[in-house]
């Protein structure tokens, strides 16, 4: 994880996302207009969040199978990074909604579902903090993480599709993917997803390494005393 090539790649991709996402020509669509640029920030942050949550769940499963704390460190830090992206995603989404739908919060099913999803992960953090023993915290945290993820998937992928959503691509609204996610948007969209995911991974790995160092220092202090 200490190799640096992918960090340089991250910075490059994000610089490209910022510059190209804000300056490149975009298709003109009714209502959306220039706000279509939110695609490169809002939508891609959700993609990054989902990818990081999947990584966290995989690590939770690994922890339950092996009982090694390093997997738990990965799980909690990837969840933390995902929560950061979730909050950013919901804020950028609200800003975008203000200019296209007229309100910060319009009770859209996807908006509601993502807010509930965040509640789920805040509860996960509180659960972890209420347990003091490291191994018990890791085990019960992993159990809840997997359980919550199993409820999170139908919540954000299945339920909003059963009702009309104001989101582009739902309920007769012009979609990004149907005809207007043209090559120009794609050129920024895919690099942006990779860029946001990588910076989340970077954040998470830095914190995982910090945790490992703290644990080693703690162990040393305990051993000195005894």
């Amino acid at each position: 994880m200490r190799t640096s090539w992918w960090k340089i790649l991250t910075i490059g991709l994000l610089l490209y996302t910022l510059i190209a996402g804000l300056l490149l020509d975009v298709p003109r669509l009714p209502i959306l207009n220039e706000t279509i640029r939110a695609l490169h920030f809002h939508v891609t942050m959700w993609f990054g969040m989902i990818i990081m949550l999947v990584v966290a769940v995989v690590n939770s499963i690994k922890y339950l199978r092996s009982n090694e704390l390093k997997h738990d460190d990965m799980a909690i830090e990837f969840t933390n990074a995902a929560i950061l992206f979730g909050v950013l995603g919901i804020v950028t989404g609200m800003l975008w909604a203000k200019f296209t739908w007229g309100d910060y919060w319009s009770g859209d099913p996807k908006q509601n579902a993502s807010a509930i999803g965040l509640l789920m992960y805040f509860a996960y953090l509180i659960l972890r903090n209420s347990l003091t023993d490291v191994h018990q915290r890791a085990r019960i945290g992993a159990v809840y993480n997997i359980f919550a993820f199993a409820a999170f998937i139908p919540l954000i992928f299945v339920l909003p599709r059963l009702t009309d959503s104001l989101h582009p691509g739902n309920g007769g609204n012009p979609g990004f993917n149907a005809y207007d996610l043209d090559s120009k948007l794609r050129m920024v969209f895919y690099p942006a997803i990779i860029g946001w995911t990588l910076i989340g991974t970077w954040l998470a790995t830095v914190r995982v390494r910090l945790k490992r160092v703290e644990r080693i220092v703690e162990d040393k202090m305990i051993n000195q005393v005894s």
């Binding site: 509930i116 999803g117 509640l119 789920m120 805040f122 509860a123 509180i126 659960l127 209420s130 347990l131 018990q136 019960i140 159990v143 809840y144 359980f147 919550a148 409820a151 139908p154 919540l155 299945v158 339920l159």
Partner: peptide
């Protein structure tokens, strides 16, 4: 899950509500 942790009643509510919403 909540029975393993202290302050049971609050934890029970905050853990179950988001999961039960679907």
């Amino acid at each position: 899950i909540a029975s393993k942790a202290s302050n049971n009643a609050t934890l029970m509510a905050i853990l179950s509500f988001p999961v039960i919403i679907p």
